[in-house]
């Protein structure tokens, strides 16, 4: 086991991690029906890092995301963001799911603009700047993901890949300090997915934000992330935490090179082990 322990919270402010889980666990339900989703977990993420969480389905990856975004409180232990307990120090968070959930009654520009309408300090200036500064801001971001000229289109006029690009823009328009991605490219075909990896990497390199990515795709994790955390079956815990030592910007070709493939195989073996299988489908159904 290679769990990264959180450096204690008394550490000097400079060394303080951006996100820190200290023995945080999550249990759903009570009494006999209680299900532990996440074992007490330590995890630290420093500012500007790109961390991927991989593991079998239902292992508590999304639970970790939900705790960071305050949608879920830890049943025990603590989650710190920016050195303070979660909620005490609200930071700007962007979030993108596999389901793009763009609002069908708004065009792409207004969809992307939605967070500016809600998140301070943009909120107060929204009506004054929506036609000027904010509009330019949206157009610039759309151009960055290859959607320039699509601002007036409606979501249903876009392909799945384009909708997911718009979804990324919506998650980024309010300059979040932290970006949470829950299998954002899961429903896309291979080539679209690889295109979006490149876009995601460019966005991360240009914006220098902290990203926490939940994914099933090991190539995706290895291409995008600085660190990959492998999780066990439910109740989840972090089995392994490995850095990805590949130069940036990474290319799709690099994902086929020997050391990259070796990393993938090692991670894969770990997840297969965590699922309790041999990799051949002969395990009892219902778990997965």
């Amino acid at each position: 086991m290679n769990v990264m322990t959180a450096s204690s919270s008394i550490a000097a402010p400079i060394a303080r991690p951006f996100i820190a889980f200290e023995q945080a666990s999550v249990t759903f339900g009570r009494g006999e029906k209680a299900v532990q989703a996440l074992q007490p977990t330590d995890l630290t993420i420093s500012e500007g890092d790109f961390v991927a969480l991989v593991g079998p389905s239902g292992c508590g990856k999304s639970t970790i995301l939900k705790m960071v975004s305050e949608l879920l409180k830890p049943s025990s232990g603590y989650v710190f963001i920016g050195g303070r307990e979660i909620g005490a120090n609200p930071i700007r968070i962007g979030m993108a799911y596999q389901n793009p959930t763009l609002l069908p009654w708004l065009n792409i520009r207004d969809n992307v603009m939605l967070p500016l309408k809600i998140v301070p300090p943009f909120r107060g200036e929204f009506s004054a700047k929506r036609k000027g500064e904010f509009r330019d801001r949206v157009e610039a971001l759309l151009a960055q993901v290859g959607l320039s000229g699509f601002g007036d289109k409606y979501p249903w006029q876009l392909s799945g890949g384009m909708m997911q690009r718009a979804n990324l823009c919506r998650a980024l328009i309010h300059d979040p300090e932290l970006l949470l991605l829950d299998e954002p490219f899961g429903a896309l075909d291979q080539f679209t997915r690889e295109e979006l990896w490149a876009i995601m990497q460019d966005l991360w390199l240009s914006k220098k934000l902290t990203v926490l990515l939940v994914t099933h795709d090991l190539r995706e994790a290895a291409y995008l992330a600085n660190r990959i955390c492998v999780m066990s079956m439910r109740p989840g815990r972090i089995l392994d935490d490995s850095p990805v030592d590949m130069p940036r910007p990474r290319t799709i070709d690099m994902t086929f090179q020997p050391d990259f493939v070796a990393l993938n195989q090692r991670l894969r073996a770990m997840i297969v082990g965590a699922r309790g299988g041999t990799g051949i489908v002969n395990h009892p159904p219902g778990q997965g």
Binding site: S69, L71, T101, V119, H174, L180
Partner: peptide, 13 residues
């Protein structure tokens, strides 16, 4: 959609 609600709550809406 619950995902959309999560997105909004994450924005502290």
């Amino acid at each position: 959609e619950p995902e959309l609600e999560d997105v909004m709550k994450t924005l502290k809406a």
